[in-house]
Amino acid sequence: MTISTRKTVLAGLAMFGTVAMLAACAQAPATTDDTNSAAASDFLPCMVSDEGGFDDKSFNQLGFEGLTEASETLGVKPITVESATETDYQSNVQNLVDQGCNLIVTVGFNLAAATVESALANPEVNYAIIDDTADLDFNGEIDAPNIKPIVFDTAPAAFLAGYAAAGYSKTGVVGTYGGLQIPPVTIFMDGFADGVAYYNEKNGTTVQTVGWDVASQTGSFTGGFAAGVDSLAKAQGLIDQNADVLLPVGGPIFLSAIEAIKSSGKDIAMIGVDADLYETYPDGADLFLTSILKGMKVGVAEVVAGAGADDFDATPFVGTLDNDGVGVAPFHDFESKVAATMADELDAIKAGIIDGSITVESPASPKQ
């Protein structure tokens, strides 16, 4: 598949500073630490967001926090640009190349084509991309040697959340909907629905998942990652089907789900994605049963720090349950509302997934 073809595919799916660096003062003969510091001062890390911006309380924000943390440690000031729409991706990446960035981190699957195109045209620049393997030909090979994927096998973590949701549900119906029908979204939905099915298998229950069908890979999507009328309608549609646990997957779309829940007047819980939304969005804390976590902040910080120390390679960073790259947040205010045995059950399931006795698979899972 060519880059232009991939752009077409992504478009189809969607229908679904001036740099301030530390000045090196005149110094005595350099020690090892002095040398590393001098090297870091010449390093300029940069980042391009996907739609939603760096304050989305979700994946863009987590990536930004990782970049900021590593940059502060290195003593450099990063450059960041936000994408308002998909038409901004290519120009935003080129903008950072033109500003002399040494490492450009792109946030999200949707930036894959722009990232690969720029990496091939600028082999002296290093790139990292979150939530995509930069494999436009789908042959298992990264398409440029200067791109490092930062990906996460979130299906097992979502499986745990699905199990908990089924155990909590009083109506026997739980629901999920997504922003765009792309792998970083559907992987959550696959794991969630399979976790509900596993709960039914183990407990003799018939909790139903609405909004996503794993077998047919079809379900409910807003067509973007913005909160608003479309997301509100999708959430309301699940509520109308009697769902009392909602999993909105796609950055800020969760804000519309909160609106729908409050308008309904019903006792409905939510599950967050990417970050622990109980902490990042305290205004909705009383609604969050748990959140499905992706260690994007840690992954980005590790990659940026490595590149700043002149230690960059294209080997993918893959977050898993085993390395704590993915997981589930505490029940917080719902601790007394879930079964007393639920935490122990989830610990046992997590151990089973890690040792291979419980298989959790998704078509969207990254190759490891």
Rank of each mutant, 00 (worst) to 15 (best):
M1Q: 01
M1F: 05
S4V: 01
T5D: 12
L13P: 00
M15H: 03
F16C: 03
M21A: 07
A23D: 15
T31C: 07
D33V: 12
A38M: 02
S49G: 12
E51D: 09
F54E: 05
D56P: 14
Q61S: 10
Q61E: 15
L62C: 10
L62E: 14
L67P: 03
T68E: 11
A70W: 12
S71W: 02
T73G: 08
T73W: 07
I79T: 04
E82P: 00
A84F: 08
E86N: 08
T87M: 12
D88N: 15
Y89L: 04
S91F: 00
N92I: 08
N95M: 07
V97K: 12
D98C: 09
G100M: 04
F109Y: 15
N110P: 06
A114L: 10
A114I: 09
E117P: 13
A119N: 11
A119V: 12
E124L: 05
V125H: 01
V125D: 01
Y127G: 06
L136K: 00
G140L: 03
E141A: 14
P145Y: 01
I147M: 03
I147H: 06
D153T: 14
A155Q: 13
A155S: 15
F159Q: 02
G162V: 14
A165V: 04
S169N: 11
G172E: 14
G175H: 13
L180A: 06
P183T: 05
P184N: 03
T186F: 00
Y198D: 11
G204I: 08
T218V: 03
G223T: 03
F225Q: 01
V229S: 15
A235V: 07
Q236V: 02
Q236I: 04
G237K: 12
G237M: 14
Q241H: 02
D244W: 02
L246S: 08
L247M: 08
G251V: 00
L255N: 13
E259Q: 15
V273W: 07
A275C: 07
T290E: 11
L293G: 07
L293N: 04
V298K: 07
V298T: 13
E302L: 03
A305P: 01
A307M: 06
G308M: 00
T320E: 12
L321Y: 13
A340C: 06
D344S: 15
L346E: 02
L346Q: 04
G352P: 13
I353F: 04
I353Y: 06
S357E: 10
T359F: 04
T359Q: 15
V360G: 12
P366I: 12
P366Q: 06
